[in-house]
Design a protein around this nucleic acid. Structure first.
Length: 483
RNA sequence: UCUCGAGUAGCUCAGUCGGUUAGAGCAUCUGACUGUUAAUCAGAGGGUCGCUGGUUCGAGCCCAGCCUCGAGAGCCA
């Protein structure tokens, strides 16, 4: 359907056949005997080279063919006389769809910083790096759907606009149609949300999990994959105000099953990228190698593709929170007081602790389970008391990745109604506010489990990029929503 | 939100102890050369030194406030 793309031409078109190429000019080089135009249409990282003889293209047309301009080129596909490519298009006809004034077009045929490209996010998909990232992002998203579909899961569409903040997962964005400058007030002088669109306060979702559990209690295995919003003032390379989250939720799964699924799933999507995005990964790997050259020898990391293969080929390390604390207490940085935050059973592990476990101690992805109850969400299933553990724990599970930190957070859910309600009272959540959620425990409750995976963190890992703002087309971060 | 760092040409940066006319590479334009590969060579154009105020005979440089960007931390996915 539609015109043939450069990817197809390079892979399939016969030498001698007539082809039409539509795309954007990356570079133009003129010489005495030939004019070379490198054209890219985003279908692949590779450009196609179009060649014309001097004088063949009218002088005023040739002037319009500059970096960034858009062309249609027709001609015969021929074996290339040069060494950089196998085939090229011998130009018979050129049409300029759109020009790009070289003085004004910001993408020059030279290296640009990622910071600069963020300022021109509307144009950065036209660079090699970002087109490669966007193709990988697509492939990973497709692999997510394929994995769950092939494994008997149903894609459940949970709401974007919600009235609940049961999880307390973070600050929320308010959704309202009330007049901000003159909101209606009730008898108490407070804003009268009864007059708002939904007749109550609403926000953008921070998680589809609670609704996901409703789906799992009917369809057994569901997943969500949609946008999620956090109004936290987070300014890091790992946080976005708008990001995409994948949340499978499964009836009749216990923590062990949940871990198995998480590991199998992550390995599958990474394998899919390795098999289907070889050229893009190769490009990103070379790009990273250039960057690594700036670093001292001992700080350099494994080449990208080797790193991905390593994750796919090796079992994730599974350790309990209690064992992890023990490892940290015996660790060199703890003994030498190198950790900024103190280690003791009951603490929420800090970035430095997670990094030590993943990058120094185990040197592979780690699944941490059975966290102290006090530092985890109310809906996590409570473990029976264990004499080896100083306090009560819950069946939580965090998957930690090198360089990324927490990529997955999940748990087996508390299916006992009374325990769940008791826990809600302890942490100050009004059960009445999510009566519908609690009814899953009243009517045909079942053991179940699930997790959330931050899609951009996965893309970050697979592309080897360093900043999450560079793996989503139009990042939303504090003070930034231009495009 | 906190800590640290940065802001000088379209981009990436240099700019000595505060001193006279603000520099380089790349990009752009012009010319030369060449089946070229982000070509090469030569020349040219291109600046409100983030903003506001202050110190000083004199500020890109020192001081204060603000803005923006980046790195790390917290929160988390």
């Amino acid at each position: 359907m539609g015109p043939i793309q450069i990817k197809q031409i390079l892979a399939e078109a016969a030498v001698g056949s007539n082809v039409t190429v539509k795309g954007w000019v990356r570079t133009k080089r003129e010489s005495k005997n030939a004019i070379f135009i490198a054209i890219n249409d985003g279908s692949t990282i590779h450009n196609i080279q179009a060649v014309a003889e001097p004088g063949q293209i009218a002088e005023d047309t040739l002037k319009l063919i500059t970096t960034g301009s858009c062309l249609k080129v027709t001609g015969a596909l021929v074996a290339s006389q040069g060494s950089g490519q196998a085939v090229e298009v011998k130009i018979a006809d050129v049409h300029v769809y759109g020009t790009a004034d070289p003085d004004a077009y910001p993408l020059q045929p030279k290296k640009h910083s990622l910071e600069f490209l963020r300022e021109i996010a509307h144009l950065r998909p036209r660079t090699n790096t970002f087109s490669a990232i966007l193709r990988l992002r697509h492939a990973l998203a497709f692999a997510v759907h394929k994995y769950y579909n092939d494994n008997g899961f149903f894609y459940l569409h949970t709401p974007i606009i919600t009235a609940s903040d049961a999880e307390g997962a973070g600050e929320m964005f308010r959704v309202t149609t009330l007049d901000m400058y003159n909101p209606p007030k009730n008898d108490e002088g407070k804003i009268d949300f009864k007059q708002d669109f939904f007749g109550r306060e609403t926000n953008l979702t921070v998680s589809g999990q609670l609704e996901g559990e409703l789906g799992a209690m009917a369809l057994s295995k569901i997943y969500t994959f949609g946008p999620t919003f956090r109004a936290e003032n987070s300014n890091t390379t790992r946080h976005l105000a708008e990001f995409w989250m994948i949340e499978p939720e499964m009836a009749f799964f216990e923590l062990e099953d949940n871990m198995n699924l998480a590991e199998d799933f992550v390995k599958y999507v990474i394998s899919y990228a390795l098999e289907n995005c070889a050229a893009d990964l190769d490009f990103l790997q070379k790009r990273l190698e250039e960057e690594e050259k700036q670093k001292p020898q001992n700080e350099r990391s494994m080449p990208l593709i080797e790193k991905l293969r390593f994750v796919v080929d090796n079992a994730f390390e599974r350790v309990t929170y209690t064992e992890a604390i023990d490892i940290l207490l015996k660790s060199k940085p703890h003994k030498e007081k190198k950790f900024q935050y103190d280690v003791a059973w009951g603490i929420d592990l800090q970035s430095e602790h997670e990094r030590f476990l993943v990058e120094k101690h185990f040197k592979k992805p780690v699944i941490l389970i059975n966290y102290p109850r006090a530092i985890k969400a109310f809906y996590m299933k409570q473990n029976a008391p264990n004499p080896a553990e100083p306090g009560p724990t819950v069946r939580a599970m965090d998957v930690l990745f090198p360089g990324i930190g927490e990529i997955i957070g999940g748990s087996q859910r508390e299916e006992d109604h009374d325990k769940l309600v008791a826990r809600m009272h302890e942490v100050g959540i009004e059960p009445e506010a999510i009566w519908w959620y609690l009814e899953t425990r009243k009517f045909g409750t079942a053991p179940h489990a699930g997790f959330g995976l931050g899609f951009e963190r996965l893309v970050l890992f697979v592309t080897g990029m360093g900043n999450i703002r560079d793996v989503i087309p139009f990042p939303r971060t504090p003070q930034s929503a231009e495009f």
